[in-house]
């Protein structure tokens, strides 16, 4: 069989894997919904959770489609589709594919036609490098969560604070990341304007302001329904504001 990065057989193989992973998501969703019913959880709240999660996911998922398109120029469509549907993310996959290619004296972004052997090498590097979490979660999560549960019984207040502290730690790291190009203001970088580092900061500020506005509307006008959509609205508003802000500061 003559190899091509967009050979139908590759789509069938990737499709089977994506279908299995989709099956896992459906399985866990049904299992959790059944448990929610057993626990007597409010059905309206569960519906709201499903609706909000679905709406919230749309914009990031479209961004993932963009990543698939970006990687497809070198690797064809089937492999990026698989890698970004199962385990991967653009930053991980780009580095892994780049390292695999460079080991074969090729460069990501400049590949004209891969051979089957090169494709197998790239796939193996991407797969073996990224799969730690898949086997480590079964290996340690029961003990790890058991420890959290024991802590909860010993000191419930501290366990809640600990959980919130972990969330805040993650958010703080990403808020810091928003400022990572801020220093261009006083230390210029070739190919970028001095104010370009302010773009993510302004976008974040717009999203934060919209979130505050949503909160105010919920309180003042008693628009409780807005609670379901506040995060997706603030995210879309922030992303939309990036267009004029980039034109202005970029």
């Amino acid at each position: 069989m003559k190899f091509s990065v967009n050979h139908p057989a590759l789509f069938i193989l990737a499709g089977v894997l994506v279908a299995v992973v989709l099956g896992q998501s459906v399985y866990f969703l049904v299992k959790a919904l059944r448990r929610a019913k057993q626990l007597g959880m409010d059905t309206a709240k569960i519906r709201k959770t499903i609706r909000t999660a679905a709406i919230f996911t749309i914009a990031p998922a479209v961004a993932i489609v963009l990543s698939v398109i970006t990687l497809s120029k070198d690797l064809g469509l089937a492999l990026p589709w698989l890698r970004l549907s199962v385990v991967g993310s653009l930053s991980y996959e780009t580095v892994a594919a780049g390292n695999a290619l460079s080991a074969m004296d090729l460069e990501l972004g400049k590949v004209s036609q891969l051979t089957a052997q090169q494709y197998v090498n790239i796939t193996l590097v991407m797969t073996v490098s990224i799969m730690v979490g898949i086997w480590l979660v079964p290996a340690i999560s029961k003990k790890l969560l058991g420890g959290v549960s024991k802590l909860q019984q010993r000191d419930a207040k501290w366990t809640d604070i600990l959980s919130n502290a972990m969330f805040i730690g993650m958010i703080a790291a990403f808020l810091g990341f928003v400022f990572c190009d801020f220093s261009r203001l006083w230390s210029p970088e070739a190919g970028f304007s001095a104010t370009s580092g302010l773009i993510p900061v302004c976008v974040m500020a717009v999203a934060a302001l919209v979130m505050v506005l949503c909160g105010a509307l919920m309180k003042l006008l008693k628009w409780k329904w807005l609670n379901d959509y506040a995060l997706p609205i603030s995210m879309i508003a922030g992303m939309a504001s990036a267009i004029p802000i980039t034109a202005w500061l970029g």
Partner: peptide, 24 residues
């Protein structure tokens, strides 16, 4: 549209930051 997708993470964490930081 390119700048909008390039700034997805700042937009996401701007909103999420307000929701969580205001309570903690």
């Amino acid at each position: 549209l390119e700048p909008a997708f390039a700034q997805m993470l700042p937009a996401l964490f701007g909103g999420l930051g307000v929701a969580f930081i205001s309570k903690n």
